[in-house]
């Protein structure tokens, strides 16, 4: 029974990491420069089964990696210090609508896991009430 709460917690953690990543993508939608050189690269989380890597029971979920994607968009702005010789600035390829949809999905999945924890708590309560 306590295992169920751990499983749901792993789901909560994974969805929160996804939410952080989405927030980072939106915050950096116009960052033309980054420590890696070039514009900010869009981050995307990869989920994998098991509450941690090499989990033998394979219960729960974890973020196995955060991938950087080489997607960009070109914006015409000849006066910009980062403009190329044709007058285009290379910006991160971030679609605000896509990020928003992902964000809503993460929030709903987080809520579903919260619901599962609440149900686990109710079940544990009723089982423990047998003692008293």
């Amino acid at each position: 029974m306590f295992g169920a709460i751990d499983i749901s917690t792993s789901g909560l953690v994974a969805q929160r990491i996804r939410m952080n990543t989405i927030a980072m993508n939106i915050a950096n939608a116009d960052s033309v420069d980054s420590p890696d050189g070039g514009p900010y690269k869009r981050r995307s989380v990869i989920f994998s089964v098991g509450s941690q890597p090499n989990d033998p029971a394979e219960m729960g979920v974890h973020v196995s990696s955060i991938e950087k994607q080489d997607v960009y968009r070109m914006k015409y702005d000849p006066k910009h210090p980062y403009a190329d010789k044709d007058g285009y600035v290379k910006l991160p390829g971030i679609d605000p609508i896509l990020e928003k949809v992902n964000e809503m999905e993460a929030a709903r999945a987080y809520e579903a896991n919260i619901t599962a924890v609440e149900v686990s708590k109710a079940m544990l309560n009723s089982a423990l009430r047998l003692l008293a």
């Binding site: 169920a4 789901g11 989920f47 979920v61 993460a106 686990s120 079940m123």
Partner: peptide, 19 residues
Amino acid sequence: FTQERHEVLANNISNFDTV
């Protein structure tokens, strides 16, 4: 049985977005 099954169902929910 229902306790055991609850773990499986909670596992499903935590993996709603797992590829």
